[in-house]
Design a protein around this nucleic acid. Structure first.
Lengths: 225, 225
DNA sequence: GCAAAAGTGTTCCAGATACACCCATGT
DNA sequence: ACATGGGTGTATCTGGAACACTTTTGC
């Protein structure tokens, strides 16, 4: 163990980031958890995250920790909220800047980090016991996601660049946990004028093939209304 | 100057809070700034804020710094966003958890802290040069306020417990920077069923007196829609 | 030819907007 | 009596919700 080397006139809290990574898998909204290998909360599941390095941005820290612990990159990331209850970590005072992230499942191939922690997807409605205040963080992230679904184009972040209308509707249905009317849904999305036909079709079973679409503006999440 | 006393194995950033305190004064949306007495950004105006103490919550820190620097308390406070660009403070790495606060102007009597910094109200549309990244923080707070105005009851936080309909409409008009139709505004607010008549009237010039209202739920900001 | 998902329009309702006049008071 | 802001109702528009049948394919 290295000697204490960094000294300050006043006490400084530690700063961490935690990431709630959502995806749609098996037509369910799921999120990524890692199983803790050490105390505190050993063997509990937790959000991927860790300590901020002194020269990196908060966002870089969130992406780095996600990559280190799960091997995942290239996700959409947005700051959620900062949690700082004095007793949230028994080791020392920790301020955690929480982020949420979204990505299409097929782009994601989680693998445990070298320290052999397990990594896995968990449906939002059947989560295991969680470390720290991570239940609260997930709950807030989920509510933010539901809210943003209907005034932003955030749903597109769950999809590959080319997708069918049905896939997009499934994203909405999984997040809202409700079935939507196909005609009204298509009318509403078309009215936003966000998508363009690719001209391609996907054959996908014994029924009529589906047209595929592409976002006109895939890089950005746009605020509607 | 005290000796360095607090040592860590890894470097820790400093954590601060900053508060964007809004009020309605002279039928304009204004916010509270303090003039900096020391470097960096000496003489620049800045948001009230300061370093987190190791045992206080983030929210307590925001309220404490506001009280210390301006003598103001009893405001509505909500977390805004956390700013952590590595170069945002030239002295050391600082993570700032920004809050915004709202209060009726008459409840507020700012006075400079003992170190003789000036404290003052500034209309949102004519701000002086600001220290650090405080322009960005204010811009985000302002956009959040405008957005929350139409899906929460946040406007009531600008008013005394007892107020007239015209006062409430003025809050909306100052924040949205637009004039609203009196009849439609009253109809919309009445439909929300948030207010009750007090039975009192205020005489306020050579015209018909106005009924006053009270929030049915003054302590809470409720999410509508 | 049948099962299965893709694709398409119209009617209805509710909430938002536009708009003009009478009321109670002070001077 | 008149100037000033307080207080009220109706017609219209628009976006969302409900709802059923035809099309294209694989087997």
């Amino acid at each position: 163990m290295p000697c204490p080397l960094y000294s300050y006139t006043y006490p400084h809290p530690a700063v961490t980031t935690d990431v709630v990574l959502f995806t749609i898998k098996d037509t369910r909204l799921q999120l990524l958890l890692v199983q803790r290998a050490a105390e505190p909360y050993q063997d509990y599941w937790a959000l991927p995250g860790g300590f901020l390095e002194i020269d990196e941005t908060l966002e870089a820290c969130a992406l780095r920790e996600l990559a280190e612990e799960t091997g995942i990159d290239g996700v959409y990331l947005e700051q959620l909220y900062t949690f700082g209850q004095p007793d949230r970590d028994p080791r020392e005072r920790v301020i955690s800047v929480a982020y949420y992230a979204l990505a299409p499942f097929d782009r994601l191939t989680p693998r445990a980090a070298s320290d052999a922690r397990r990594v896995g997807w968990h449906p939002i409605d059947s989560l295991p016991a969680l470390a720290f205040d991570h239940t609260r963080i997930i709950d807030l992230a989920h509510r933010r996601l539901v809210a943003k679904l209907d005034y932003t184009t955030i749903a597109l972040q769950f999809l590959e660049p080319e997708f069918t209308f049905r896939e997009l509707q499934t994203v909405y249905e999984c997040i809202l946990n409700a079935r939507l009317d196909k005609r009204n849904f298509r009318k509403r999305i078309h009215a936003l004028d966000l998508l363009q036909e690719t001209g391609n079709l996907v054959r996908n079973g014994n029924h009529r093939p589906a047209k595929t679409y592409r976002s006109k503006n895939p890089a950005e999440v746009v605020i509607l209304k």
